[in-house]
C-alpha cells in the first residue's frame, strides 16, 4: 500500500476527542498544508500536544486559535493572544510544561519508557502534583510518557516509502513526535522515488511514518 495520499483521504483518520501532536517550533517545521485542511474538518473537543502556540494569524497558531480544542499541552503560549484569551475565559485548559521535559515525555512514550526524571522545575509550580524522586541526593520530578492518536509532522524531503529528511532548524519536535503516536502523518515539501535518498541521510525511518502528504507552496 502506498503511503502517499491525497489531502481528502485525511478525513477518515480524524475524529472528535482525539489527542493530536503537532511538530514545529513557532512556524518552523510545522505542517501548514495538513493543518489548514484539518482545521476545516468539523472536529470537536480535541487535545493538542505542541511545543508552543505559534502566531494566531497563521499556520499552527491559527489552527490552535480557531479549532474546537479542550486542552493544550505545551511549553509556551505567549506568542498567541487568542489562545491566551481562551485560557483566561476557560474555553481551553492549558497545561504548561518546561520544554525539555515535554520533549522527553514524548520521547519516553515512543521509546517505551515509564517516564523520565528531571531536576527541571524543582522548587517551582512545575513540581505541583508531580511525584518527586530523589536520585543520588538530588530531587527530580517524575514526568510520565505523553502519546497521541495522531502526530502531524513536517519534513523537507521524503521518499515514497516514508523515509524523512528534515532541513536546518525545522527538525525540532518532528522526529520525536514521529515515534509517539498511533498514526503518523508527515507533510513533505518534496516526495521522491524510493532509492533516491541516501540511506545515510535518513533522519526518521519509514517504519514510523504511516501517510505522506505533499506540501502546497501557499495556503
Amino acid at each position: 500500500m502506498g503511503k502517499v495520499i491525497d489531502m481528502q483521504e485525511l478525513d477518515k483518520f480524524f475524529d472528535d476527542e482525539m489527542r493530536i501532536m503537532i511538530g514545529g517550533f513557532l512556524d518552523c517545521g510545522t505542517a501548514e498544508t495538513v493543518l489548514a485542511y484539518v482545521n476545516q474538518l468539523d472536529l470537536h473537543s480535541l487535545t493538542i500536544i505542541v511545543n508552543d502556540a505559534g502566531y494566531n494569524y497563521k499556520s499552527k497558531g491559527k489552527f490552535l486559535a480557531t479549532a474546537d480544542i479542550n486542552n493544550i499541552i505545551t511549553s509556551h503560549i505567549g506568542t498567541n493572544p487568542d489562545v491566551g484569551a481562551k485560557m483566561n475565559n476557560g474555553e481551553i485548559e492549558i497545561e504548561l510544561i518546561p520544554q525539555g521535559t515535554l520533549v522527553e515525555q514524548i520521547r519516553a512514550h515512543g521509546a517505551g519508557l515509564g517516564g523520565i526524571l528531571t531536576p527541571t522545575g524543582i522548587g517551582t509550580k512545575a513540581e505541583e502534583g508531580k511525584q518527586i524522586i530523589e536520585v543520588e541526593g538530588e530531587k527530580h520530578i517524575l514526568a510520565t510518557p505523553i502519546g497521541a492518536d495522531i502526530a502531524i509532522i513536517k519534513a523537507w524531503k521524503a521518499d515514497k516509502s516514508g523515509n524523512l529528511i528534515y532541513r536546518h532548524s525545522a527538525k525540532n519536535f518532528n522526529p520525536i513526535m514521529a515515534m509517539a503516536a498511533d498514526t503518523v502523518i508527515a507533510e513533505a515539501e518534496n516526495i521522491v522515488e524510493n532509492g533516491e535518498l541516501d540511506n545515510n541521510n535518513i533522519m526518521t525511518s519509514n517504519i514510523f511514518v504511516d501517510y505522506l502528504v505533499k506540501s502546497k507552496p501557499e495556503n
Binding site: D52, S75, M87, Q99
Partner: peptide, 15 residues
C-alpha cells in the same frame, strides 16, 4: 495578568 509559559527557561536555569 500574564501567563506566557516557561518555554525552555526552567531547563536553562537548572542546566
Amino acid at each position: 495578568k500574564l501567563v506566557p509559559g516557561m518555554g525552555g527557561a526552567m531547563d536553562l536555569t537548572v542546566g
